[in-house]
Design a binder for these strands. Structure first.
Lengths: 351, 351
DNA sequence: TTGAAAGCGCTACCAA
DNA sequence: TTGGTAGCGCTTTCAA
């Protein structure tokens, strides 16, 4: 059996308290005794206090849980998520907190159990879809948490760091509109659940369940509505996933059909890069060039010359961690909206 | 105070065991009683069994620790590490295990404490330098672990997944040698600790402390030695970090000096991309083109036309997780060497 | 400076 | 099917 603190105490002939003190309160005993205890521990192969037992007793763990309501590997596949995690981990590191990445099974009951069973002091919920159930489980545990988007309904103690999705989306749409584009397609990931890739009939942005996508589509629409281009004049394209391939598949038929749009506004850079892939492939067969915009400004966007909206990924992660680990006294400071910036590159041209 | 299992038991008028059973062994009580208990729990706001207490009692945690002996954010900054983590997290997810990313402070004593205090069932150690101290702490805790490189000295129960660094490096060097290059520079990250960026005097690869870098440099040297080009004829360049910028800085003086090498063999793609950056910047001032090779085959390598050695990043992560979570019965199967492949692109040309 | 006592919240065994 | 008992390994008063 693995030796315990008790064994060390027995070996030295002192009480457990004293051994415990030797580890976590060196000032509470003589240096000599402490040395004697540590020596005995080494001799016995005692690896130091058991972390789980210590957490139970102390009432905290030293780790924050990170939740992606999707495959966990998504976190490492999406460039924006990776940068967010870089910022988050840097700040967590500074606070001496570890990061527990919690995989969520597809089965709702088991997913909820995963949230209930995570040994953490708080949660950072990376919003990618419907995570209300997870927030509910977290609130029941009375743990602090932070999300990466404003909540749908305000909740006391709900802290978040996000951007003004709608206003940000509007800026890039205004840029495209100013270039003279009027036949425009909007591309989003999972605009409606279970919808197939490609064009979608949608009464308005309000019908989109995912708040981030809803906000961005609404912002795109705002810009055109101001110029008299109605929602019904816009094409909405659905991608079945936030990936390059899904973006490419979503637009393929539309771009190669007759009367294609002159511009495609995507809800993420990854989708937009997929559009560029389709465009590059279709190449000579296209009647005329198509302008494309993305959202996020990931590294690949610059290389591809993609016009996009920049949001500060690492900073978002850093602030999320700080909101959790060093909560502001003023509750209003728990709601952070970051600035975004339109980045114009070569993927948008006059219509 | 937060309600505990005991409170629920009191409320329903049953024993704690029965409440516990209601949560983790539903077959041990009648459906009716279980419903009654769960209802009471809901009423009281009991969020379910405390994960830490459960772990203590059960003796396992359901998480594996991931150690990067560097800034934790490095894990998200290095493309190869990110792909490794994607593979690792996918496999962990399948096994229902969470991932605890443990930040390691710079201070050695505190770093060791971080390893000792992590509540995990095992460790995956991503090798980036000297991690013997961490392995030592893990062994004392008698936890299973896996590393991403063969150990320097064999240890029972040490499992690893790696590649034959030396043989792999040799293949790309042979390719460069076959193109006729004889004046060659080798570029590695932290070839010697605390060495400045740029050329380095080194008696031989054996003097390099980091095993991965040592193996790759030795492999490069092997290829040239076979053609009569001695170690002393090769230039060794030191980069102070595994980053594009560090790679660029390491080669700048050498490439723009007189009598520059005709080829640079880098120990990673990231470093090689830095070399390409320097080359692009120096551009017209260069006497003649310089061939460059990398190592890893990250996504950016393809776009940059970089000749490199491909190693299966995601698979490495997946196998690491499986070695840990589903240990093979045969101990020999705990040592996995993955295949690598030379990928020739446009960054290498005849001398 | 040291030790005794009292749990942290839970689960697993065994007996009823 | 239910409950009593006995810890899991530790830390923290408080008293000596």
């Amino acid at each position: 059996m693995k030796p315990t603190l008790q064994d060390v105490a027995n070996a030295v002939g002192v009480s457990r308290s004293t051994v415990s003190n030797a580890y976590c309160r060196p000032d509470q005993l003589s240096a000599a005794l402490r040395e004697r205890i540590l020596d005995a521990a080494r001799q016995l192969g005692y690896p130091g206090p058991n972390p789980t037992a210590r957490s139970l007793r102390r009432g905290f763990v030293g780790a924050i849980g990170v939740l992606f309501t999707s495959q966990l590997s998504y976190a490492f596949t999406d460039p924006f998520a990776v940068r967010f995690l870089a910022g988050l981990s840097g700040a967590a590191e500074r606070h001496g907190s570890a990061l527990l990445l919690v995989p969520l099974p597809d089965d709702p009951a088991r997913a909820r159990a995963a949230v209930e069973n995570a040994a953490v002091d708080g949660f950072c919920v990376y919003c990618v879809g419907n995570e209300e159930w997870a927030l509910d489980a977290i609130r029941r545990r009375a743990l602090p948490y932070v999300t990466t988007a404003a909540p749908e309904e305000a909740h006391p103690a709900h802290r978040y760091v996000g951007i003004d999705e709608r206003a940000a989306a509007r800026t890039v749409a205004e840029h495209v509109a100013a270039l003279g584009h009027r036949r425009v397609a909007l591309l989003g990931d999972t605009v409606l659940p279970d919808a197939p890739p490609g064009p979608l009939r949608l009464a308005g942005p309000a019908d989109v369940p995912h708040p981030t996508t809803r906000g961005r589509l609404a912002g795109f629409a705002d810009a055109f509505a101001a110029l008299g281009v109605d929602w019904s004049d816009l094409t909405v394209l659905n991608a079945t996933g936030n990936s390059r391939a899904a973006g490419a598949a979503a637009v393929a038929a539309t771009l190669t059909g007759d009367d294609p749009p002159s511009a495609v506004l995507a809800c993420s850079d990854v989708l937009a890069l997929g559009v560029l892939d389709t465009l590059a492939e279709a190449g000579p067969h296209l009647a005329r060039p198509v302008s494309v915009t993305g959202f996020d400004d990931i590294a690949e966007a610059a290389a591809a010359g993609l016009t996009t909206v920049r949001q500060p990924a690492e900073e978002k992660g850093r602030i999320a961690a700080e909101l959790l680990l060093a909560p502001p006294a003023d509750p209003a400071a728990g709601h952070v909206l970051l600035d975004t910036a339109l980045v114009v590159r070569t993927s948008t041209r006059p219509a």
